[in-house]
């Protein structure tokens, strides 16, 4: 798992959800732990798309529940 990707996911999450950096740990769930509602999740996914230059199709958004899920998903998708 790329440390750089985790850092960038953390930065985007802090910005989008207005949470503290130390809360954004790999096990943290966006909805359960970081206070995101369904609209926040859509907005967050768009911010990941912009940050990493990738497309995240609607039917794959369900795979991204935690910070760690986001890092894994993005690492898989990201152009080398």
């Amino acid at each position: 798992m790329s440390a750089d990707t985790l850092e960038r996911v953390r930065k985007v999450t802090v910005e989008e959800l207005g949470v503290k950096e130390e809360e954004v740990v790999e096990s943290a769930s966006f909805t359960e732990d970081l206070g995101a509602d369904s609209l926040d999740v859509v907005e967050l996914v768009m911010a990941f798309e912009d940050e990493f230059g990738i497309d995240i199709p609607d039917d794959e958004v369900g795979e991204i529940k935690t910070v760690g899920d986001a890092v894994t998903y993005i690492s898989k998708k990201k152009p080398a």
């Binding site: 910005e15 989008e16 959800l17 207005g18 949470v19 206070g35 926040d40 907005e43």
Partner: peptide, 8 residues
């Protein structure tokens, strides 16, 4: 407002 809302 809270930080998240205030930003957007």
């Amino acid at each position: 407002l809270d930080k998240k809302e205030a930003r957007r």
